[in-house]
Every structure is written in structure tokens, then in C-alpha cells.
Measured scan of single mutants.
Amino acid sequence: EFTQISGYVNAFGSQRGSVLTVKVENDEGWTLVEEDFDRADYGSDPEFVAEVSSYLKRNGGIKDLTKVL
């Protein structure tokens, strides 16, 4: 089950073990991109978060400006 990723309007994530599946949706709710990120592939949590965040930004993730990150 996908849940909204904090700080984004149209990005959602689903966690299974160490694998986080993220997706970005358009205004109609269609999935634009979907990608798996395995936490085990990264040396640290900040590196993992930075990679996921960068992916979302590159692929149309819209920041939720009503929330302070």
C-alpha cells in the first residue's frame, strides 16, 4: 500500500523490508514513474534519503510548500 511521502504533493512510497518503492503521479492520478530503492545499496540513511529525494525532483515530484521540511 502506497502512502504519501512527507513534503511532496504527488509522491508516494511503499516499504517492503529494506526496499522502498516510490512513485510520482500526475494531476489525474496516473503513475508517471515508479522505482525501487534498496536501503542496503546505500552507505547511510542521509545518502539514501538524498537519492530518493533527487529522483522525485527529477521526475516531477511537487514539493508541498504548506509544510516545513
Rank of each mutant, 00 (worst) to 15 (best):
G60A: 05
V22S: 00
N10L: 04
T31S: 07
N26F: 06
T3F: 14
Y55D: 02
W30R: 13
G29C: 06
S54I: 08
R39A: 04
E47S: 04
L65G: 10
E47L: 06
N26Q: 04
V9Q: 07
G17T: 02
F2L: 05
F37D: 00
I62H: 05
L20N: 00
Y55H: 03
E35F: 12
L32W: 08
E35A: 15
V22D: 00
E25D: 05
T66A: 08
E51G: 07
I62S: 04
T21N: 02
E28A: 10
S54Q: 11
V33H: 11
Q15C: 15
E28V: 10
D38V: 02
E25C: 15
G13L: 09
K57I: 10
L20P: 00
D64T: 09
S53Q: 14
L69P: 14
E34I: 14
I62L: 10
L20T: 02
G43E: 10
E51W: 08
E47W: 04
F37T: 00
S18Y: 04
A11R: 00
V52R: 00
G17A: 03
K67N: 12
R16E: 02
N26Y: 05
Q15D: 02
Q15T: 11
Y8G: 06
V33P: 02
V52Q: 01
V49P: 00
S18V: 04
S44I: 02
L20K: 01
G7V: 05
D41W: 08
R16Q: 07
L69Y: 09
L32G: 04
G17P: 00
Q4V: 11
E47K: 03
E25G: 05
G13Y: 14
T3K: 14
A50I: 06
K23F: 06
A40L: 11
W30D: 13
V19K: 05
F48I: 01
R58C: 11
I62D: 02
D41I: 07
E47M: 06
F2P: 06
K57P: 03
W30M: 14
G61H: 02
K57G: 09
D27Y: 10
P46Q: 15
A11E: 00
F48C: 04
K57C: 15
L56M: 00
F2A: 04
Q4D: 04
V52Y: 05
R58G: 06
V49H: 13
Y42N: 01
R16V: 07
S18G: 07
E28S: 10
A40H: 08
K23S: 05
L32Q: 07
L56A: 01
W30E: 13
G17V: 04
K63H: 09
V24F: 04
F48E: 00
A40I: 06
E25Y: 15
V22Y: 01
R58A: 11
V52N: 02
T31Q: 05
V19E: 00
D45E: 10
V49C: 15
P46V: 15
N26T: 09
L32N: 04
Y8W: 15
K57E: 15
A40G: 07
T31E: 04
I5T: 03
E1Y: 11
L65R: 08
T31C: 10
T31L: 09
G60F: 09
Q4W: 08
E47C: 09
L32M: 12
S54W: 10
S53P: 00
E1A: 11
L69M: 10
T66E: 14
P46W: 15
D38P: 01
G43T: 10
N59P: 01
V9N: 06
S6L: 11
G13S: 13
D27I: 11
A11W: 03
A50N: 09
E51Q: 09
D27G: 10
L20F: 10
D36L: 09
Y55R: 02
S54T: 08
K63A: 11
G43R: 11
G61I: 06
N59S: 07
K67G: 14
D41V: 07
Y42W: 06
F12G: 00
K67W: 13
D64R: 08
D36W: 08
G17H: 03
D45A: 07
Q4E: 07
V22L: 05
L65H: 11
D45C: 15
R16P: 01
T3Y: 13
D36M: 12
I5L: 10
L69T: 13
D64V: 11
G29A: 05
